[in-house]
Design a protein around this nucleic acid. Structure first.
Lengths: 497, 194
DNA sequence: GGGGTTATGGGG
DNA sequence: TGGGTATGTTGC
DNA sequence: GACTAAGTGATA
């Protein structure tokens, strides 16, 4: 086929004439050097053919997704002080909103919404009525543009260090190569930010008509939305996190969330899922399926809904308790809890701990880490030898085997050979120690103290059960470790089963 | 301990592939009840040939004999033209292969259970009922976990066999106060692997 | 537009 | 900066 | 001189 076969358009065009009467309500002449005039969502003229500019607050969003060979779409629900509450009777405090559909030729040209309540500025959108609702269209592939301002101090990505910090009048993200900001916009941003904070404080925003309770998920025909608390984030593999979710109905579900797509999620946070389906093929655990247009978003800090659910929803570990009664469980069980004082300690992979700790400047400057792993083998394999007699002066340990009373203290001296997602595909296993000679990790076995296991049959039996539990498939340890002499020692960590 | 899987698995592929992993990769141990003809929808034919069971898509691996037979029995049908058509796989088996999962998207953790097709035919007229949007079986939560279980078992067996001599760091050795001691002492390299 | 890509087949 | 080209939009 | 109709005409 010849290259000219494609119907490329001629560049030289015949000049044509047309008439353009004075259009309706075109933005007032940019008299005072103000190029853009921002309209309220309900004030934007539905009859206007000319493009409109506005600021709004985002209350829902798809992830930018590809629709065909040449287009990407991101669809949002937006509100502002003129449009946020359903007016009809009987709708309670259900939210009203406009939709905003952004079109682009490249994925990178569309906004990624990680948090509800943030502010979006749009230039040159058209408006029309679609399904009885105000719909703004912004062709980013042509002349429309967008900019995102954080309502909280930092954007979702800035919170995790994944984005350069910005001041409160600078967008954390925007389309196009440059961004312009008129002097008169500062007040607009500050006003709508304040409004957004109050609005989320006072209303649920995501009203009950905007999501489905998880205990009704199985009955849904197609996809649905979810509002739930993240009880646990389990690193399934190098690319994937498995979220453990529970909502106000009390039902627990799991869903896979790609790390790259959703880097901002944290245990304990409340999220909204835009579009999930019930997985009919998962028989061992309840699973939600996501699509490429699905999104998982958090809420701004003032959110009343998020605050209520964070307090109301707790983890009773019922799924895990049931899982442990099976011979093999497809539900990951995290056996331990770490002391609250380490809540803010960032987690590091075994790869960091054992392959980067001496080369990475940041890592080598620290000695206490949070880490997750599974235990492939415990030494000594004879549980009776987990506890030894320890002489503080000579630093010698001796077996408690035999009847003769040993001097010194009884301590645990156990070595875990462990592995995690970051080391899943290599041939190594890594030594993490439970040595209690200095008191570190003394409470690991949930109240089972270091005693002579050749004599104390009760303690021995419990520890044998823990040995089984720790090395069982899908059992994980979430631990704080301290580096001493190049070795990692478990501390402030306790089994809760 | 109870065996679970109280309800029937709706996806034929997920059940079959999981069975293979749960039987140590030995197709001979997979229940004969499951070895029935597979009616599949051809989701894509090029550059990757993918078939679905209404829930998941997988790659069928046609043997040379299967292709030869197909061409002789259906000389007017091109295999890449089977896109959007229904095929019936009458004779098949499963085998476990080590692959590079960074390159093979129908695999997980460097393992791929392959559907080996020994004999198949087209059902050119047949239209299947619409199903859910088919997804990659190797991206399924439970199936990934099943593969992890398989690997976990293999690792524990290997460790039990190859790591007989236990050697636990002495307390004297770990209580120095040596800030410069390297962490690689904690790396335990598989003594006999490959 | 409440949706279905792909040299991106673990952001899309 | 200016001309040429590719592409979006609008008018016919 | 003010107002209207018709002509003009993109832009990254």
């Amino acid at each position: 086929m010849s290259s000219a076969a494609k119907n490329q358009r001629s560049t030289s065009r015949v000049t044509k004439k047309k008439t353009t009467g004075p259009k309706d309500a075109a933005p007032k002449k940019a008299e005072k050097g103000s190029k853009y005039e921002y309209v309220e969502l309900t004030k934007a003229q539905l009859t206007s053919v000319t493009a409109q500019h506005f600021y709004a607050v985002v209350i829902d969003a798809t992830f930018p997704y590809k629709t065909n060979q040449e287009r990407y779409i991101c669809s949002l629900k937006i509100v502002d002080p003129s449009l946020y509450l359903k007016k009809e009777k009987g709708t309670g405090d259900n939210s009203d909103y406009a939709t905003l559909v952004l079109y682009a030729k490249r994925f990178e040209d569309l906004p990624i919404i990680h948090r509800l309540g943030d502010i979006i500025r749009i230039h040159r959108a058209t408006i029309r009525l679609y399904n009885g609702q105000r719909q703004f269209n912004a062709n980013i592939f042509y002349s429309s543009s967008w900019a995102l301002f954080s309502t909280d101090k930092k954007s979702a990505l800035q919170e995790i260090g994944g984005q350069e910090a910005t001041s409160d009048l600078v967008p954390f993200s925007h389309s196009g190569k440059n961004f312009t900001f008129q002097k008169n916009e500062a007040g607009i941003v500050q006003n709508i930010r304040k409004w957004a904070q109050q609005y989320f404080t006072q209303y649920s925003v995501i009203s009950n008509d905007m999501f489905t309770a998880l205990n009704k998920a199985q009955a849904q025909k197609g996809d649905f939305d979810v509002v739930a608390k993240i009880l646990q984030i389990h690193e399934l593999d190098e690319y994937t996190n498995e979220l453990k979710l529970k909502d106000a109905s009390g039902q627990v579900f799991y869903t896979l969330a790609l790390k790259l797509k959703f880097p901002h999620l944290r245990t304990g946070e409340v999220v909204r899922i835009r579009s999930a389906t019930y997985d009919e093929t998962s028989t061992q655990k309840k699973v939600l399926l996501l699509s490429h247009y699905s999104n998982i978003v958090t809420f701004i800090s003032t959110s009343k809904l998020a605050k209520e659910l964070r307090g109301k929803i707790t983890d009773d570990r019922a799924v895990e308790k049931a899982a442990l009664k099976q011979d093999v469980s497809l539900s990951a069980v995290v056996l331990t809890e770490v002391d609250k004082k380490h809540a803010g300690l960032p987690a590091h992979s075994l790869h960091d701990l054992f392959h980067n700790a001496d080369s990475d400047k940041e890592l080598s400057s620290k000695d206490t880490f949070r880490t997750q792993f599974y235990v492939t083998k415990i030494e000594p394999s004879d549980v009776k030898e987990w506890v030894k007699a320890y002489d503080r002066k000579t630093k010698k340990v001796t077996s408690l085997k035999g009847s003769a009373a040993k001097g010194g203290d009884n301590i645990f001296q156990v070595s875990f050979l462990v592995k995690d997602a970051s080391t899943q595909l290599n041939n190594n296993t890594y030594r993490v120690l439970l040595y209690t000679h200095d008191g570190l990790g003394a409470n690991f076995f949930n109240g089972v103290k270091a005693d002579n296991l050749h004599k104390n049959a009760d303690a021995r039996k419990k520890l044998e059960e823990y040995s089984e539990l720790l090395t069982r498939f899908n059992s994980y340890v979430d631990a704080v470790v301290e580096r001493r002499n190049g070795f990692y020692f478990i501390k402030d960590t306790r089994i809760v089963y | 301990m109870s065996k679970s899987q109280q309800v029937q698995q709706q996806s034929a592929f997920k059940q079959l592939y999981a069975e293979l992993f749960n039987n140590g990769g030995d197709f001979g141990k997979v229940s004969n009840n499951l070895k029935k003809p597979l009616k599949c929808y051809v989701k894509e034919s090029y550059p990757h040939f993918l078939v679905t069971d209404g829930y998941f898509f997988v790659t069928p691996y046609f043997t040379k004999e299967a292709v030869t037979e197909f061409h002789s029995k259906f000389p007017n049908v091109n295999i890449v033209d089977l896109h959007d058509k229904v095929i019936v796989i009458n004779n098949w088996s499963l085998e476990l292969r080590r692959v590079n999962s960074a390159e093979v998207f129908t695999s997980y953790a460097n393992l791929e259970a392959r559907l080996i097709v020994h004999s198949f035919k087209p059902n050119l007229q047949e239209r299947l009922n619409p199903t859910r949007y088919p997804v990659n079986l190797y991206r399924d939560d439970e199936f990934k976990t099943t593969i992890q279980h398989f690997r976990h078992q293999a690792l524990q067996q290997s460790l039990a066999k190859n790591l007989k001599q236990e050697n636990i760091p002495d307390i004297a050795k770990v209580t120095g106060g040596d800030k410069k001691a390297k962490v690689d002492a904690g790396i335990v390299r598989a003594s006999t692997s490959k």
